[in-house]
């Protein structure tokens, strides 16, 4: 039994936003509920259910996949998603547990991105865009939204549009937890472009870790763009990524260990992405 006093099922997006504006800070949107219910923040008294707004579903457009915000994570573990957005599939298959994936929604796991969201880091690396509704509609990339301080007061996520990985691009995703079922101490998503099978010409590296919000680094490859791919190049890329990530110590890991993990996981993700993109080099 939780202390929530009211539960309102919104019929339309406008109604949901209107309710949230009226009640203010005492209210919260709820979709899957897997974060809202166990946290049960004392200040929250009214829940506005946004899972009946028709915001679920997957559509495959040319060059991108569009996923409704209230689509459940388990629905995304499908052969279609595996074919179209394999990095998201990979990230979600190591995310939480089957029981939680059956309730949790994609929008919900982004709204709570302050946690080390596996989906969030994958989408950040992939350059996904979010369709938001607050007072007005806006479309922003996950990266821009992070830079701008995340969602506004009563904004809700309607839809997520994920560009498909292009020719000559590859992806890699690594996660590290204290055991196989864990929130990520560190997770890293990489999207790499490889030229001539031998050089990383572009690299998008999204790094999540449980002590602060995820970051996206897009300029890493500039320094090594002319060098032939080697483990040494990959390590240097990973080390410079690690240097740029702000980490803190907490009971789950020390800052130094987190930095180390970022470097190791970044290297592993870059390697996987480069190989996927057709890089040829000796081990």
């Amino acid at each position: 039994m939780k202390h929530f006093r009211q539960f309102v099922v919104a019929g339309t997006v406008d109604e949901a936003i209107g309710l949230r504006k009226t009640v203010g800070a005492k209210s919260l949107y709820i979709a899957g509920g897997t974060t809202v219910v166990p946290m049960a923040r004392e200040s929250v008294e009214v829940l506005i259910d946004i899972s009946h707004l028709g915001l679920d579903g997957i559509s495959d457009q040319d060059g991108s996949i569009s996923i409704g915000a209230t689509t459940r994570l388990s629905s995304l573990l499908s052969p279609d998603i595996k074919a179209a957005v394999p990095m998201l599939f990979e990230a979600l298959s190591h995310c939480a547990t089957p029981l939680i994936r059956n309730m949790a929604t994609l929008g919900g796991s982004l709204a709570g991105i302050y946690l080390p969201s596996d989906a969030g880091v994958a989408l950040l690396a992939l350059g996904a865009e979010l369709e938001l509704r607050g007072d007005e509609e806006r479309v922003v990339t996950v990266d821009d939204l992070l830079a701008g301080g995340w969602l506004g007061g009563y904004e809700l996520i309607r839809n997520v549009r994920i560009p498909k990985i292009g020719k000559g691009q590859g992806w890699g995703f690594s996660k590290f937890g204290r055991s196989d079922i864990d929130i990520a101490l560190v997770n890293v998503g990489a999207v790499a472009s490889v030229t001539d099978g031998s050089r990383i010409s572009e690299l998008r590296l999204a790094i999540g870790q449980s002590s602060s919000r995820p970051v996206l680094l897009t300029d890493l490859a500039e320094g090594t763009a002319t060098e032939a791919i080697s483990h040494d190049v990959i390590r240097r890329l990973a080390d410079s990524a690690s240097e740029r990530v702000k980490v803190k110590s907490d009971f789950r890991a020390s800052a130094a260990y987190r930095k180390h993990l970022v470097s190791v996981l970044a290297a592993r993700s870059i390697l996987a992405a480069a190989r996927e993109a057709g890089a040829r080099f000796e081990d």
Partner: peptide
């Protein structure tokens, strides 16, 4: 299971 990958 030897791997030549220096970070794996």
């Amino acid at each position: 299971t030897p791997s030549g990958i220096p970070y794996d």
